[in-house]
């Protein structure tokens, strides 16, 4: 049994007359059937009878339904939003499952059996024993080019993706490069064009040949899709304008990491800024291991102190930071 966060597991309100993980078993079965279909046809969007969830549409209802359908008592759940465990929406969804499913939760990537995410793939590698569940606001990668659902489904069915390539051509003609920095479209298993959800294109290469099962749930649009482990995922590009990820000249100011996705933090109103890892667990672990970044000045030091102070009373964060010592 992996180490779990007992504080949230014992949260008040557990049970409350709702079924385990909120959804009734019939619904979960239906969703699991859709997930199986999605795994069998990688990248294909399977329509499913999405239910109303007690969180608003657009806030992760699709990911929550997928998580609710696959989660069991033995599971340990990690929830991240923008790479961080302690953003309000991540906290809220983690609370929801701690309350309705009484499962253990964690902030440690390697301890989680299920990670539900919005907008990031964790920096730490994942394994075959884990499942990554993405929250999907808009599953249809062709939607910005073709608003009609019927036509989009035909384009997928007939593998007519020339129009998508035209939009990349237009970017290069206009800007000299492909000007898509997130939701960067990918081909899955050389067959279906797929939206990787609004993760930064920085994370796209991680999806390729990924050991963990990747599941995608779009609640409002009522679609589920999947990438089975070790599937080929290719970001669209041109032979002479190959796909490239973002790079920073700076390193993480807190932990000194050189190859992570960095958030820009504004330090003052005169343009002062620094960069820190967007993956809060990854960054915290490195700091606990003794890695130190180049804090630019006293303002940044104050920021670091504030983050530490902010997180101290919060069991999750304190645990994450102290994890390296245990």
């Amino acid at each position: 049994m992996p180490q779990t966060d007992n504080q949230t597991a014992a949260a008040p309100g557990a049970g409350e007359g709702y079924n385990f993980a909120y959804l009734d078993e019939q619904t979960k079965r239906m969703i699991r059937r859709c997930i199986l279909k999605a795994v069998a046809v990688p990248g294909y969007q399977v329509p499913f009878g999405g239910r109303e969830m007690p969180l608003p549409y657009g806030w992760g209802t699709g990911g929550m339904q997928v998580t609710a359908s696959i989660i069991g008592l033995d599971d340990t759940l990690k929830v991240i939003d923008q790479g961080a465990d302690d953003t309000t929406n991540a906290v809220n969804i983690r609370r929801f499952f701690a309350r309705t499913a009484q499962v253990g939760t964690t902030e440690v990537t390697e301890e989680a059996s299920i990670i539900q995410t919005r907008h990031r793939v964790p920096e730490d590698p994942m394994t075959e024993d884990q499942i990554l569940v993405y929250q999907v606001p808009q599953p249809e990668p062709l939607r910005t080019l073709e608003p009609r659902e019927i036509e989009c489904r035909k384009m997928h069915a007939y593998k007519e993706y020339g129009l998508m390539q035209v939009s990349l051509y237009e970017d290069i003609a206009r800007f000299g490069e492909i000007a898509t920095s997130y939701s960067y479209p990918v081909m899955v298993n050389e067959r279906y064009l797929m939206s990787p959800t609004p993760i930064p294109k920085f994370d796209n290469p991680k999806m390729d040949d990924f050991p963990a099962l990747q599941l995608f749930g779009a609640g409002r649009e009522k679609r589920i899709y999947a990438i089975p482990p070790y599937t080929k995922v290719k970001s669209l590009d041109f032979d002479d304008h190959p796909f490239r990820v973002q790079q920073w000249e700076e390193d993480c100011a807190l932990c000194g990491a050189e190859e992570t996705f960095l958030d820009e933090v504004i330090l003052d109103d005169s343009g002062g800024k620094m960069y820190v890892c967007s993956d809060s667990h990854f960054c915290g672990r490195r700091r606990a291991e003794g890695h130190v970044g180049q804090l630019p000045d006293t303002a940044a030091a104050a920021y670091a102190a504030a983050v530490g102070a902010q997180e101290a009373p919060d069991g999750d964060a304190a645990q994450a930071q102290g994890e390296g010592e245990t």
């Binding site: 608003p56 549409y57 657009g58 806030w59 919005r118 907008h119 606001p137 997130y182 930064p200 958030d263």
Partner: peptide, 22 residues
């Protein structure tokens, strides 16, 4: 319910995407 949720989800943090756009 769908419309209200999706319009208001713009309140959620988007700073990874915004960082990419920056």
């Amino acid at each position: 319910v769908e419309a209200s949720g999706f319009v208001q989800h713009l309140k959620l943090p988007h700073y990874v995407d915004f960082q990419s756009e920056l």
